[in-house]
Amino acid sequence: MDTQISTTHPADTSDVTQEHVATPRPRRTKAVASTDLTLTQFDSLPNAAHVRLPVVKGLLGCSSATVWRRVKAREIPEPKKFGGRITAWNVGELRRTLSGADKVS
């Protein structure tokens, strides 16, 4: 019986070409896509509309912690609570604050 034992290490990929290696694509979730859309169309939203934290983060270009820090420091308006876990900012109030026309008191 003739058996051949391979001495190649499994991690040896020197003969693998780039076309055989699959690179994973980053997945875009529905929430990310809707946030991107809301940010691009922010100017067309009515003043009575409300936006969630990811949109505010995108508008300010900062992290969640910084958004909450700015709310606490009264640099941006406080969000409204719409139930147990839903918090959103009024678009009109954000516009006034971002334009500098309204100081949060």
Rank of each mutant, 00 (worst) to 15 (best):
T97N: 14
F42Q: 08
T87Y: 06
C62S: 06
P77K: 00
D15R: 10
V104E: 02
Q4C: 09
S6L: 13
V51S: 04
E75Q: 15
R52W: 03
V16N: 03
A65P: 00
R70Q: 07
F42W: 09
V55I: 07
T29H: 10
Q4G: 05
V21Q: 10
D2V: 12
S6T: 10
G84H: 11
K103V: 11
I5P: 03
L45H: 07
T8P: 00
V104I: 14
E19G: 09
K30V: 13
T7G: 14
T13V: 13
V56D: 02
T97I: 04
A11K: 11
V32Y: 12
R70W: 05
K103A: 09
Q4R: 15
W68K: 13
T29Q: 09
A11N: 15
T29F: 07
V67W: 03
H9Y: 08
D36E: 15
A33L: 15
S14T: 14
R70N: 05
R28E: 13
R28L: 14
P77V: 02
E19S: 14
R85A: 03
A65R: 15
G84Y: 04
L45I: 05
R52F: 05
I5D: 10
E75F: 00
H20C: 11
V71I: 08
G58P: 04
G58Q: 04
R69K: 15
K30A: 13
L39F: 06
V16W: 03
A101P: 00
S64Q: 15
P46V: 07
G61F: 06
T87V: 14
Q18G: 05
K57P: 01
R52G: 03
I76M: 04
L60W: 06
S6N: 12
C62R: 12
L60V: 05
R85E: 00
L39A: 02
K81P: 02
R25L: 15
T38H: 11
L94I: 01
K30P: 07
V104C: 09
S14L: 12
R52L: 08
D15Y: 03
A65T: 13
C62A: 07
H50R: 12
K72H: 12
D15E: 10
T17K: 08
A65K: 14
T8E: 12
P79D: 02
E75S: 06
R96S: 15
W89T: 01
D43W: 05
V71F: 00
D15N: 12
S64W: 08
R85F: 03
P26H: 11
H9R: 12
R52A: 08
A49K: 08
V67L: 04
G100S: 02
Q18R: 13
G61A: 02
S44Q: 15
I86V: 13
V71L: 05
L45K: 08
A48R: 13
L45Y: 05
T17R: 09
E78Q: 11
T40K: 15
G58V: 01
W89M: 05
A49G: 04
G61L: 06
A22S: 13
R28Y: 12
P46K: 08
P54K: 06
T7A: 13
